[in-house]
Write a protein that binds this DNA or RNA. Structure first.
Length: 414
RNA sequence: CGAGGUGUAGUGUAACGGCUAACAUUCCUGUUUUGGGAACAGGCGACUCCGGGUUCGAAUCCCGGCACCUCGACCA
């Protein structure tokens, strides 16, 4: 993409109504626009990052047998009455409205009931199981207070997968696979080294759920971490008894602030029972389906990466989720420079390499550098009078201080 | 929802109860410039969050509302 066609503009000053680092940088660099508290629009650059994250999650979900679909954001009262979760005294974060004919309508705040209801139409036999449907979707929660930029919003984009299994054993096998898939996801988006499997409250059907907590001061959770074992326990359930049960020693644990970037949960028959979601086993006996849920907030994940991987100049995207791989800058308006930059842009683009080409002719070098640092694209390639004279291109990684001259072969090898 | 704070051009800030609401940046025009947010000149851009009140006079004081931020409560 040519930067002259990118309508978004960087800002020098931080917005006065944002304190959190992720929002500050994403707004300054033109990735997101704040509509209202807890509600952000994703601009072209922001959407590209979100799509990259989506792609990684999709690959990992498909690899463990996930089948993607798209469920509606609109939810009917009837479905949610089955579990009692339509009731405002049970769930107070619904956004609800009325249809023209007076009927009730709610906007999805989670998906368990919707999935159980849909699967009810299709699951009859043990031959139909297991099933691992999932979707990417907007979720709406009327939070009393949103905070921390895009880390906790009233509208957010998530991936939710629900597992439907014949029995506990089959469920547990998938649950472990999901755990590994989640580890892969966080590793691939660049925060694996700071993300820990964390034991958290499990509810009625299992002793624990598992959260994936990324260490950052911007987080709203407190965990007790055993760094050597790579395990943590959420403060919510932290006590002597739990520690003993998990085999964790108090003296090995350190208290850390963290943000929950994902969670996986065994639901047992909590949602299948109200929907009478049953199947016939080999002997013709009816059994309730065992369910599990697996969620990741994509916007939160994106914000967490910014929190954890930025410096005083701006964002530092990992290659895997950067909006572009290369930021190509032309300096000055010398004909030769512009021509060479244009050629390189075309060539790289034709090879399928994502390039943001800063082709603005009337912008000073310093401003281009500052913009580039702020946006955080992994590789910067500069074409200027200097490089034209010397031959080759100037290459600098966002994570490195010094640039170096590379020949075209070397660049294309990258 | 409880507590505290803040609302002024697109953005960031300033202005004693008193002149045409100022400065920087962005943007536009022109000249000059091009390796770390360049220089000069000129210009556009604000019902000072909304509604009411006090006052000869309100961005400024008072009341009510709304919005935003922070702490807490809440939070699969």
């Amino acid at each position: 993409m040519k930067q002259s066609l990118l309508f978004t503009k960087t800002q020098r000053e931080s917005p006065s109504d944002e304190v959190s680092l992720n929002a500050e940088l994403l707004i300054k660099a033109g990735y997101v626009y704040k509509e209202m508290s807890g509600v952000y629009s994703f601009l072209p650059l922001g959407l590209r990052v979100l799509k990259k994250i989506e792609g990684i999650i999709r690959e990992e979900m498909n690899r463990i047998g996930g089948t993607e679909m798209k469920t509606s954001i609109f939810q009917s009262k009837d479905v949610w009455d089955k579990t009692g979760r339509w009731d405002d005294s049970v769930v107070d974060i619904w956004f609800k409205t009325k249809l023209k004919n007076g009927g009730d309508l709610g906007l999805s705040f989670t998906n368990e009931e919707a999935y159980a209801n849909i699967l009810k139409q299709h699951i009859n036999s043990y031959k139909d199981l297991p099933a691992y449907p999932y979707d990417f979707k907007e979720i709406f929660r009327n939070e009393a207070r949103s905070k921390s930029g895009i880390l906790r919003g009233r509208e957010f984009f998530w991936k939710a997968l629900y597992s439907f299994s014949k029995d506990e054993e089959e469920h547990n096998i998938f649950y472990e696979k999901a755990k590994e898939a989640y580890k892969n996801i966080f590793k691939r988006v660049g925060i694996g080294h700071l993300t820990y499997l964390t034991f958290a409250s499990g509810g009625t059907f299992s002793k624990y759920s598992h959260e994936f907590q990324t260490l950052t001061g911007a987080g709203e959770d407190t965990i007790y971490l055993d760094e050597n074992r790579g395990l943590a326990i959420n403060k919510e359930i932290y006590d002597e008894e739990e520690l003993k049960f998990l085999g964790l020693k108090k003296e090995d644990l350190i208290e850390k602030k963290s943000i929950e970037v994902g969670n996986i949960f065994s639901l047992g028959t909590k949602f299948t029972e109200p929907f009478n979601l049953i199947y016939k086993d080999k002997d013709g006996r009816e059994k309730l389906v065992i369910m599990g849920s697996y969620g990741i907030g994509l916007g939160r994940l994106m914000g967490t990466v910014v929190e954890v991987l930025s410096d005083d100049k701006g964002i530092i995207w990992p290659e895997s989720i950067a909006p572009f791989k290369i930021h190509l800058l032309s300096l000055g308006k010398d004909e030769k420079v512009l021509q060479e930059a244009e050629n390189l842009y075309k060539e790289l683009t034709q090879k399928g390499i994502e390039v943001l080409y800063d082709d603005r002719e009337d912008v000073s070098a310093g401003e281009k550098f500052a913009d580039s640092d702020l946006m955080g694209i992994p590789f910067r390639v500069i074409i200027s009078n200097r490089t034209v004279t010397e031959g080759g291109y100037e290459l600098k990684k966002r994570t490195e201080e010094k640039e170096r001259i590379v020949k075209r072969e070397e660049l294309f090898k990258l």
